[in-house]
Design a protein around this nucleic acid. Structure first.
Lengths: 229, 229
DNA sequence: CAGTATCCTCGAGGATACTG
DNA sequence: CAGTATCCTCGAGGATACTG
């Protein structure tokens, strides 16, 4: 942390949160990632050494605390101070969503990361009971397949075929899924013009719209889409 | 600007605002600094080369625009996008004020910077008509004198004696003035126990409490002070 | 006043290999 | 799985001197 030597709350916030990656670590914690590997996978491009460093710094500032879960594994959780940061984080993201929304460029399209986000925001209470497997077939920017496995309301992303039949197959392209997730395209519209196609038993097909969760900034995305339409 | 390659509003905000000093430049613009030299003086430790660089980057992102004022001088102003950032900036500062308020450490006590901030937040409508000079005598952390000259409602900070008699002399220490500015100590309490002393004609003495302006985060500072009291 | 050009340093963080 | 240790690079930004 590099200090500014100014006694000012904005300067203090910039000191505590201004290091590269720090804000994204807090974002992922706020969205429910707690294990080191979950965090690391959600932050492609960030080395694990650096992630450790940032977590320690956030601990020193009282924003993050380490807990051990029942299974002997460590977890990272936001403290009260960290939780208190959420409104500011939302304000920042809303500002960016209002003023810089656009389609992701190719470099930003990452099927795995996209599915992590979808998994993170799944409406668990709307998931089918027991085991449920959805396969995502992306047609563009390049063909790829990825699975979303939900067991007892706990979604996991698989890049390898889990080896049994999916209950639902979602065929789409990454840009469309991204637009829908960000609120910039209505799911109903994407289904209507077949940029998203669903295949499976009718209950599974109907269920998709219920458990699919949106970005925390989708509300702003919808507003922006409505304005430019 | 270093990118994260993630399509996410929080990542975008961090890209645009995450470079060192950038948030403080925006803060100063939001608080009414517009001239290059005003900005530079309000950011001790930041080189002018770097300030230029940051201003250009903010221009590219559509947050800042250059205007030329009547006198042939350039000025920097927040654009609509920049203005739209104010709520998020306040949310961040409030968060820091809520969770990290403390007395400034010695290194953060800078009489000139403190007076710049006081000048920036003076309630202009409450200033005496015409010319008004206040002298600030600091007893601690080291003895120093600085002047606040107000002409036609326009406050300026002078480190050199303007050469005429002050209408008001404020004797205090930097920590106290800082506490009052930040809302963590009531001006009335500081006057009562003489950590701030005012000397001058009774109208000038009474006027001080009217034109003295507070930090945008003083409301939060007051709340925090009330809690710990 | 409001910058720009040039040179140089040093530290953030990547790559890699290792460990309880 | 959840890190740590070591080595090395490269680019951010400071210092300095200059300009319309």
């Amino acid at each position: 942390m590099r200090t500014y030597g100014q006694y000012c709350p904005v300067a203090r916030a910039a000191e505590v949160l201004g290091d590269r990656w720090t804000l994204l670590v807090v974002r992922d914690l706020a969205e429910g990632a707690h294990r080191f590997s979950e965090l690391s996978q959600g932050l492609p491009g960030m080395s694990r050494t650096l992630l450790t460093q940032r977590l320690r710094a956030l601990e020193r500032e009282g924003i993050v605390e380490r807990r051990s879960n029942g299974g002997g594994h460590r977890e990272y959780w936001l403290t009260e101070i960290g939780e208190d940061l959420k409104p500011a984080l939302l304000a920042l993201g809303d500002w960016a969503a209002r003023n810089y929304s656009r389609d992701p460029v190719r470099r930003e399209l990452d099927a795995r990361l996209m599915l992590f986000w979808v998994a993170r925001h799944v409406r668990r209470e709307a998931l089918p009971q027991g085991r449920f497997l959805a396969r995502f077939d992306f047609r563009a920017p390049r063909t790829s397949t990825i699975w979303l496995l939900c067991q007892d309301g706990e979604p996991t992303v698989c890049t390898e075929d889990p080896g049994f039949e999916p209950d639902l197959v979602v065929t789409t392209d990454l840009t469309t899924l991204n637009r829908v997730f960000a609120g910039r395209l209505a799911l109903s519209a994407a289904l209507r013009d077949r940029t998203i196609e669903l295949a499976g038993a009718s209950a599974a097909v109907r269920g998709f719209a219920r458990w699919f969760g949106y970005s925390p900034f989708a509300g702003t995305g919808r507003l922006m889409a409505a304005k430019t339409a």
